[in-house]
Structures are given as structure tokens and as C-alpha cells.
């Protein structure tokens, strides 16, 4: 009965360690990160902790970020490419509170970027760390649900099943039907799940300047891709890997060769396509680029974004 007295009398629960995790947990995660970097694409088991947000909501990414972040870091958190999605806001607030670090929405200013489902459009640079939130780290899981089996397949480098699956897609649909979480081979050895990013982002992983760390909290796995590392999307000679292509540019910034979100404007089929990477879009607009639906008044001041347009 003393714990509650501690909480209420001394406010003990309000005083967490820097970045929430205790030092022993951080050490355990740090060791796993180093092994992950040394064995690119291999999923290192780690003793994931319960976090104050639910499993499946970024606990792996949060634990990785908490283990690496220091007082001088500048943190950016995105979900679906956007800094202002509710879960990104929540995770950013968590670190602002528990680590007191500076946060930013500007990709170029961040030293650590935690992401769910996207890689920023702007090429990342040396010294930046991209931390991915991963729901199911095992690329073979949907082919073989048993951990005991998939572990053997990785050990023996036995990835035929994955190719069979992709080829069955082609036979049935004329296309590889995997559009996100598209499997990659890292440095010619491990087949790896890039997390549920659209395959549009896969080429950005290849020989990136940034260190890429992946955290899967519920599944208790950490893996990594060091900078300048070969990351090749699986494909076939007669069906080479290709990324999504959008027929029109971003309606706000006019950007091309970027990933777009479809925003439904009305119930009569009206829709617009806008950048999923909100920072990229804002930067382009600030530099004077305009898409066809961007009104001149749209980006006055700091209050700019999709919502204004979508709700008109």
C-alpha cells in the first residue's frame, strides 16, 4: 500500500528518468542496436518493455529513440509522412516532456526522426538517424506464422518461399500485389521487412547517408541498416521492381516524384492529391511553388496545410 502513498505524497511517479526508460533497459536496448548495426537486416531479439502507450502504437520506435536520444538531439516525429497526425503529436509530446529535447517539424533540422509508414522525401544526411516503428518485423511471417520456422529460414538463407509468393501474385494479377511493407534484401544476405512504408519509399533505403533503426516493441525485435548499405527490393528479371507513379503533381506545391495522399473533397467524386510529406510540401510552398489548387492566401502565416483546403 506504500506505492500509492509515494505517488501522491512525493510525486514520485512524476519524476521519470531522462527519456523515461531506466538505465538498465536502455543498456539492453543499446546492446541490441549495436548488434543490429553489425548484422544488417537481422532481427535482434530484445526484452521489450511495456510502455505508457499501447503495443502497436510505436512502442518499439519509442524504445529505440529513448535509448539513443540525448539532450542535444533535435527530434522530429512523423506518422503517414505528417508531423501533425495525432499519434505523431502524442509521441513528440512524450519526448518533449520526458527528455526535454528540442523538437522540430523540419526534416533538415532533425538529428533523430521517428517515423511510422513513410520515409521523408528529402534525402537524409550523415549524422541523422531514422527510427522506424515496426508492427510485424518478420518479412516471412505471412508465409510461415511460426517463429521457430522463420528463424531457421533466415539462418539457412532460405528465401525461396518469398519469391514463390511474389511470383504467384504475378501469375494471378499480372502484378506483384505487394504495395507496402515490400520485402528487401540487405547487403545480399537478410531479407528484411522495411515496415509498412509504401514501396515508393524502398529506393530511399538503399545506400542512405543516414543510419536506419527499426523497433518492433510487441514482437520484441530491433534491426538496423547502417549508412551506405545495399538495400535491394526483391523482384524478377521479367518483372523488375517499380515504384508507384502518380499521374498528377501535388495540388498544393506542384511537387512531382513524391508520394501523394488522396483527399476526398465531396461525395461526387471530387478529390485532390497532396504531398504526404507535410514538411516537404510546406518547404516547396514557402519557396514559391504552387499547385493548381493552392490559393494565394493558403499559405499566409504559419497556419498552412491540408485541412483548410479539404474543408472548403
Amino acid at each position: 500500500m506504500t506505492a500509492l502513498a509515494d505517488m501522491t505524497d512525493t510525486g514520485k511517479l512524476a519524476t521519470y528518468n531522462f527519456a523515461y526508460l531506466d538505465e538498465q533497459t536502455k543498456r539492453m536496448i543499446r546492446r541490441a542496436i549495436l548488434k543490429g548495426i553489425a548484422i544488417p537486416g537481422y532481427q535482434v531479439p530484445f526484452a521489450s518493455r511495456e510502455m505508457p502507450m499501447p503495443y502497436g502504437w510505436g512502442t518499439g520506435g519509442v524504445q529505440v529513440t529513448a535509448a539513443i536520444i540525448g539532450p542535444d538531439d533535435v527530434l522530429k516525429v512523423i506518422d503517414q509522412g505528417a508531423d501533425d497526425t495525432t499519434n505523431a503529436v502524442s509521441i513528440r509530446a512524450f519526448f518533449a516532456k520526458t527528455a526535454g529535447v528540442e523538437t522540430t517539424t523540419a526534416t533538415a533540422e532533425a538529428s533523430i526522426i521517428q517515423t511510422r509508414h513513410r520515409i521523408p522525401e528529402m534525402p537524409l544526411t550523415e549524422g541523422q538517424v531514422l527510427v522506424y516503428q515496426v508492427p510485424i518485423p518478420e518479412p516471412l511471417r505471412f508465409l510461415e506464422p511460426r517463429e521457430t520456422e522463420t528463424r531457421k529460414m533466415h539462418a539457412l538463407e532460405e528465401y525461396g518461399l518469398m519469391h514463390v509468393k511474389l511470383y504467384e501474385d504475378i501469375a494471378r494479377n499480372g502484378h506483384i500485389a505487394t504495395t507496402y511493407a515490400y520485402p528487401v534484401k540487405v547487403e545480399g544476405r537478410y531479407v528484411m521487412d522495411p515496415s509498412p512504408t509504401p514501396k515508393f519509399d524502398n529506393p530511399k533505403m538503399h545506400r542512405s547517408e543516414a543510419l536506419q533503426l527499426f523497433g518492433a516493441g510487441r514482437e520484441k525485435r530491433i534491426y538496423a541498416i547502417p549508412p551506405h548499405t545495399e538495400v535491394v527490393s526483391l523482384d524478377f528479371e521479367d518483372h523488375p521492381f517499380e515504384v508507384q507513379h502518380f499521374d498528377q503533381p501535388c495540388a498544393l506545391c506542384g511537387g512531382e516524384q513524391v508520394y501523394l495522399d488522396e483527399v476526398v473533397l465531396d461525395d461526387r467524386g471530387g478529390r485532390m492529391f497532396v504531398c504526404s510529406d507535410t514538411d516537404h510540401c510546406e518547404n516547396r510552398c514557402a519557396a514559391g511553388h504552387r499547385g493548381e489548387l493552392a490559393g494565394d492566401d493558403l499559405f499566409d502565416g504559419k497556419d498552412k496545410g491540408v485541412e483548410t483546403e479539404a474543408s472548403t
Binding site: 549495436l34 548495426i37 553489425a38 535509448a67 539513443i68 536520444i69 540525448g70 539532450p71 538496423a224
Partner: peptide, 19 residues
């Protein structure tokens, strides 16, 4: 400062391992 010391040394080791 054990918390800060461990973090800064770890980052140096992590960056060294990554590069």
C-alpha cells in the same frame, strides 16, 4: 553524470559502428 555519460558514449560507439 551516469545518465548523460552513458548516452554520449553510446552515441559515439553507435556512430563508430555504423560508420
Amino acid at each position: 553524470d551516469p545518465v548523460r555519460g552513458a548516452q554520449s558514449v553510446f552515441r559515439a560507439v553507435m556512430d563508430a559502428t555504423a560508420r
